[in-house]
Design a protein around this nucleic acid. Structure first.
Lengths: 158, 158
DNA sequence: CCAACTGTAACAAGATAGGTTACGTGTCTT
DNA sequence: AAGACACGTAACCTATCTTGTTACAGTTGG
């Protein structure tokens, strides 16, 4: 395993969903992410449980946003995917008896906690709409260069 | 594997070495860390290459500090063990074609870079002597509660 | 009923730190 | 010179976690 990419993937897909003219199926989303439909359902399940997206079963079903992108922060999504560990480094044991080791882990833990606080503060203050706005500045027509097939077809087909 | 504990372990062992009255063998150190002598040699090899410790082969050999703990920062050790990844989260692919994905990764990357800069700044300004001082405040006699057997026996044995 | 979806369980794959065994080499003691 | 002691390193296995994949059950609409 390399690095947990669920947060990145979910942000990516939520922006696409916002520009999609109808519900997106897991299959469609999986092709967009270059992965498998089961992986999509698995990861999006958390977002559904937190009320950021809705899923409909059966014929014509799929996924849709349950609120605007300006109402969802990166922190929301981070929590919805289960707050996976942020850091790849850490102490060797959880509660060392050795007081030297305790001192090391305390100092190291302080630095990690500071960095984590900063990171989560950034996550808290950035909405997905902010990221979408960054994209719109680069692509004023609001159409993705790659996944254009599922984007903003409202005027053409609906 | 859970989290990379090499940094924590190396800091731990360097403080013990500073209080040891003679060279410590990989075997001794491994018992202190609850691991294997090969793991110790493997990890300490980086510290040796950077000049923070020396190793002597053959009878009576082992490991010793090559400079004072106040001359080694956490950043030094982090670099000496090969700068392993700090974060457990990240983008799904390195250079996505999709511009939405690029916008997501850019925003996410900014937050991660800020947190990383803060963390490395802490690493840079904290010496191992600082951690040892924390320990000394708790254990004024300078003797570890667990690994006392290899500590500061100078007055008793030499 | 059937086709199109989601929901989930179960298991394999890939990556990486860590653990273990084995063996080579250097060095001190006798 | 022999032998014990200790590092250096390769090779292989294990554990853990995300991701990928297959299989199948349940739901919905024509």
């Amino acid at each position: 395993m390399r690095r947990d990419s669920r947060l990145s993937r979910m942000l990516h897909v939520l922006i696409h969903m916002d520009r999609h003219y109808k519900r997106a199926t897991s299959e469609t989303i999986s092709k967009m992410l270059g992965t498998n439909a089961v992986v999509v359902r698995r990861t999006m399940a958390g977002l559904r449980d937190f009320g950021y997206v809705r899923s409909e079963q059966g014929h014509g079903g799929g996924w849709e946003l349950a609120r605007g992108l300006d109402q969802i922060t990166l922190l929301d999504i981070y929590e919805a995917i289960g707050k996976p560990p942020l850091f790849a480094i850490g102490p060797s044991v959880d509660q060392p008896e050795c007081l030297v080791e305790q001192a090391v882990d305390a100092k190291l833990g302080d630095a990690l906690k500071e960095a984590e606080a900063l990171l989560l503060e950034r996550f808290r203050t950035v909405t997905i709409a902010d990221i979408a706005a960054d994209f719109d500045r680069r692509m004023p027509e609001g159409r993705c260069n790659i996944h254009g097939d599922i984007h903003a077809e409202q005027s053409a087909s609906g």
